[in-house]
Simulated assay, not measured.
Amino acid sequence: MINTRDLNSPRRSPTPLMTFTKHNCIINLQKNGDVQNRIKQKSENLLFDELDQYNIKLNFDEIDDILDRYVATAIIRLPDA
């Protein structure tokens, strides 16, 4: 399990995915489906790259679940700009 305190540590450098997500956060991220879809598409591309790099095999339902959880977390954790 990931220790969430480590995720907030100033010593961690931002991942490309988090940088992209923060850059695309705008007013009403919670209600803006277009931004949520953009974030999901970009994160899907980055996820596939990581899965290929580490030779990890996931089915599409597992990938969709990861992406849904990521977007839900971004909605909660990243304040509207």
Rank of each mutant, 00 (worst) to 15 (best):
Y70M: 03
D49V: 05
Y54P: 01
K31C: 01
D34H: 08
K40A: 11
D61V: 03
L78C: 11
S9I: 05
T19Y: 04
L78F: 13
I76L: 14
K40W: 01
E50A: 15
L17V: 14
R11F: 12
D6H: 12
Y70R: 02
I2Y: 13
D6V: 14
L7T: 04
N37L: 13
S13V: 10
S13H: 06
K40E: 09
H23K: 14
I76H: 09
N45T: 14
L7N: 06
L29N: 01
I27A: 08
N55D: 12
D34R: 07
D6R: 13
P79E: 12
P14V: 03
D65S: 07
N28G: 02
F48K: 15
T73A: 15
S43D: 08
I39A: 06
R69S: 10
F60V: 05
N24E: 09
E44T: 06
R12G: 04
T4I: 15
K42E: 14
D49Q: 12
I63W: 01
N24M: 08
D68R: 05
F60Q: 13
N37I: 08
G33Y: 07
D64G: 04
I39H: 05
Q53V: 00
T4A: 11
Q36A: 02
L47C: 03
Y54S: 10
M18A: 11
T21W: 02
R11L: 13
H23F: 05
P10T: 08
F60H: 06
N55E: 12
R77I: 04
N8C: 06
P16Q: 02
D61E: 14
T15F: 02
T4F: 14
T19N: 07
A72C: 00
C25K: 15
R5N: 10
T19Q: 13
V71K: 04
T73P: 00
P10I: 12
A72H: 01
Y54T: 07
L17G: 14
K31Q: 13
N37A: 15
D68K: 08
Q36I: 01
S43Y: 07
L7V: 03
L17M: 11
E44P: 00
L29V: 03
N8A: 11
P10H: 09
L7I: 04
M1E: 15
L47M: 09
S13R: 08
F20P: 04
L58E: 03
P14L: 09
C25Y: 04
L7A: 10
D61F: 11
N3Y: 08
N32T: 08
K42G: 00
K40R: 15
I56H: 00
R38C: 03
A74W: 00
